[in-house]
Amino acid sequence: MDSTSESFIASDEAFAEAFRRARIARGLTQDFVAALMTDHGFKWTQATVYKVEKGDRKVSVAEAVSLASMVNTPVETLADPDPKSPRRLRTELERSAKTYLDQVQIMRWDSAVATWEHQSFVLAIRAYDEATSGDHAEGEMVPTAEESFAPLINFGAPQDYENAWNRLVQDESAVKLFREFGVEIEERASRPGADEIGRD
């Protein structure tokens, strides 16, 4: 076997393994990939994807282009047989950064919702304590709801993350990274009555 043939085989094997890793990293199932390939005009099943990733079935140029687009990675990067080549490592870095920034955005919204719910929770406790303050016998020592739920009231992780997010988006270099990797920085949505929460 000549060196050219060996190079082609190495590229085929590299493409199969690199696509498998990229698919998993993006949370795509083999069934989902098969469905997308069918939408692209290829008669693929989950078994087809399995065979491709195992190296038991070669892909055409058109199929390779479609697969590469699914994982947002150039075909030549997926087919690069050198796992430590700067081109492949750069692509891996970009994909990892995009995934991480997406998760940071999701966590930001989760923390905002948790912060809102925490404030509503505190208001509910205050309202309950106020309504039941006269229900106990004189001199009876009964803990208030605020005392009972003190560990939850004092749990400040959501607000801490919200504050960390606000610092992040004020960092120009961080904002540049978000834009470079296609992550839109959304403004915090205002919640009806949120400005009244926490007031005595």
Results as ranks from 00 to 15, higher is better:
Glu92His: 07
Thr99Met: 06
Trp116Arg: 04
Glu94Gln: 15
Asp102His: 07
Arg95Phe: 03
Lys98Ile: 11
Arg95Gln: 15
Leu93Lys: 14
Gln119Ser: 07
Asp110Asn: 13
Val104Cys: 02
Ser96Arg: 10
Ala97His: 05
Gln103Thr: 00
Glu94Cys: 15
Asp110Thr: 06
Trp116Ala: 11
Asp102Asn: 04
Asp102Cys: 04
Leu93Ile: 12
Ser111Met: 13
Ser120Pro: 03
Val113Asp: 08
Leu93Gln: 14
Thr99Tyr: 00
Leu101Cys: 06
Ala112Gln: 06
Met107Cys: 09
Asp102Lys: 05
Gln103Ala: 03
Ala112Glu: 14
Leu101Pro: 04
Arg108Glu: 06
Thr115Leu: 10
Ser120Glu: 10
Asp102Val: 08
Tyr100His: 02
Ile106Ser: 03
Thr115Gln: 09
Thr115Ser: 03
Trp116Val: 06
Phe121Ala: 10
Arg95Met: 14
Val104Gln: 01
Ala97Met: 13
Tyr100Leu: 09
Tyr100Ala: 01
Thr115Ala: 01
Glu94Leu: 11
Arg95Cys: 14
Ile106Cys: 01
Phe121Asp: 04
Glu117Pro: 11
Asp102Trp: 00
Ala114Thr: 13
Phe121Glu: 02
Leu101Phe: 00
Asp102Gln: 04
Ala112Gly: 07
Glu117Phe: 01
Val104Tyr: 00
Phe121Gln: 05
Asp110Tyr: 06
Ser111Gly: 09
Trp109Asn: 10
Arg90Pro: 12
Glu117Lys: 10
Val104Asp: 00
Thr115Phe: 02
Ser96Cys: 11
Lys98Met: 08
Arg90Cys: 13
Trp109His: 13
Leu101Trp: 01
Val113Ile: 12
Thr91Pro: 05
Ala114Trp: 14
Glu92Trp: 07
Trp109Cys: 15
Ser120Tyr: 08
Ala97Pro: 03
Val104Phe: 03
Glu117His: 10
Ser96Thr: 15
Gln119Arg: 05
Arg90Val: 11
Thr91Arg: 13
Glu117Arg: 13
His118Val: 05
Leu101Lys: 03
Ser120Thr: 08
Tyr100Pro: 04
Trp116Glu: 15
Met107His: 05
Val113His: 02
Thr99Glu: 14
Phe121Trp: 02
Thr91Glu: 10
